[in-house]
């Protein structure tokens, strides 16, 4: 099989995930896009491992490690997203602006947060 098929598919999947990370507002949809990017990398690892016929099968071992780390990441990420949702009542990543520097614009979330804290 031509190496271009998996390599190009992985590149396109990665860019699809990149678009999702940049264009989505809901934090869980951002996590889904991150999963797509990780899977594109996994496909690259497997394809190059099979192409190089590595004696240690480093690509496949690294793929398994990536899958496990992605599972851990999705668990922690979802816990954080749920915590943010319980604290703020929203999971939109572009409404979490506590670290924004300019204090000129009044923050609509700040009042909700103050109410929740009170």
């Amino acid at each position: 099989m031509h190496l271009l098929y998996p390599a190009v598919l992985a590149a396109l999947l990665f860019c699809t995930g990149l678009y999702g990370v940049l264009a989505r507002r809901n934090a869980i949809l951002v996590l889904m896009s991150v999963e797509l990017m990780l899977n594109a990398v996994n496909l690259n690892l497997v394809a190059f491992d099979v192409w190089l016929r590595d004696a240690l099968h480093a690509g496949q071992a690294l793929t398994l490690f990536t899958i496990a780390i992605a599972a851990a990441e999705i668990g922690i990420g979802l816990a954080i997203v749920l915590l943010v949702y319980r604290n703020r009542g929203t999971a939109d990543v572009d409404r979490l602006r506590d670290l924004k520097e300019s204090a000129a614009a009044p923050d609509p979330d700040h009042e909700q947060k103050a109410e929740a804290a009170a």
């Binding site: 869980i28 996590l31 889904m32 999705i74 979802l78 949702y85």
Partner: peptide, 19 residues
Amino acid sequence: IYVGSVVVLLLFGLMLTKA
């Protein structure tokens, strides 16, 4: 792992955030 657990976790996350 992915189809079995990660997607189920994501669906739970979507429902718990009242999607």
